[in-house]
Design a protein around this nucleic acid. Sequence first.
DNA 1: ACTATATGGGAACAAACGTTCCCAAGTCAA
DNA 2: TTGACTTGGGAACGTTTGTTCCCATATAGT
Lengths: 191, 191
Amino acid sequence: MDSIILYQKIQAFYEDNKRMPSVREIRDRIIRTKSMRKTKELVDALVDEGVLRRDKKGKLTPTNLFTSVKKLGFVEAGFPSPAEEELLDTMTLDEWLIQRREATYMLEVKGQSMINAGIRPGDTALVERGKQPKHGDIVIACVDGKWTMKYYHILPGKKIVLVPANPKFPTIYPKEELRIEAIVTAIIRKY
Amino acid sequence: MDSIILYQKIQAFYEDNKRMPSVREIRDRIIRTKSMRKTKELVDALVDEGVLRRDKKGKLTPTNLFTSVKKLGFVEAGFPSPAEEELLDTMTLDEWLIQRREATYMLEVKGQSMINAGIRPGDTALVERGKQPKHGDIVIACVDGKWTMKYYHILPGKKIVLVPANPKFPTIYPKEELRIEAIVTAIIRKY
DNA sequence: ACTATATGGGAACAAACGTTCCCAAGTCAA
DNA sequence: TTGACTTGGGAACGTTTGTTCCCATATAGT
């Protein structure tokens, strides 16, 4: 069995079972041989290539390859040739976008108030709670009982205002209550 | 040990080791007791709650909780109270955004040609190769040797044109060569 | 003080694990 | 045919695994 195919089948096993197979599972369910020795030999080869990783206990562990997306440069540069493809950097969406998972939420955007920041109704905002906002951050705030998404601006004199990214909407000067509940860490638009 | 804390420590183990711990590892490195019986009892409780899952072989397996993000409604609805929080839907970024991982790439956007579609320079496009484009899709195309991101439009008579989302840019009427290399499945903007 | 009950420690077991070793079968050159 | 070498099957080893069981201790009730 070719080592690329072996890798693909191990990845399929990983996606199905949410864990890596044991050597015997690879032997019986993937390679379909009867040889432990040969199976370990093929697996060791993948480990040497860096496609798979092993624990201190010898257990197989997924590498980034299992969960990552290939990262190209710019649109204008287009796609690399198959030969160059192996040199590509990779990145997992989770590690890229999520810092503290337990404090991260998805919120759907409604309305046009941030349209000039490229945030449109239907977009999904990834927000993180319990983080100190800085000037210029986009925040989810509860002001006088209403929830909005706005730019967080600190005026001279440390006064806080919430600025929309749409001149048709008013800047908010909080009177009584202003709670910054979360700051927007990413905007995702799925087609 | 409280079961919520136990879950958090198991999740930390999972993020560190990219695999779930065994019962003995939980006993020695997480609960720090000497009792197998008590450890299994606590783990079984988490399995009953649906926080952990088990294989047919009894091996622990991560649930969606380990990799998912809580999904709220709309910005205007704000955050639920801690009591309501347990009812929230969850979703993993990978399963949401990626269909065929091996054909999915990240590309950085340069230029203003799609600005009116809310796609700005610096944004990251998630693109998928080998998929048939439909009218209205945003595609990565190689036309007459140059790479661009444009709307894919099918005119009456089945003629294909590439339309920018910015009136200052020209619509492209491919002369010789037009290769649709990928279609854009998501736009991600990280702050 | 004396039971009855609940709790946690830890030994024990069979299965599954990674790893190594030996040997039969195959391959190749001379 | 012979001998050197490679290959794959599979037994065997020690460890780790999930699971169960027994018993000493703690707790509570009378």
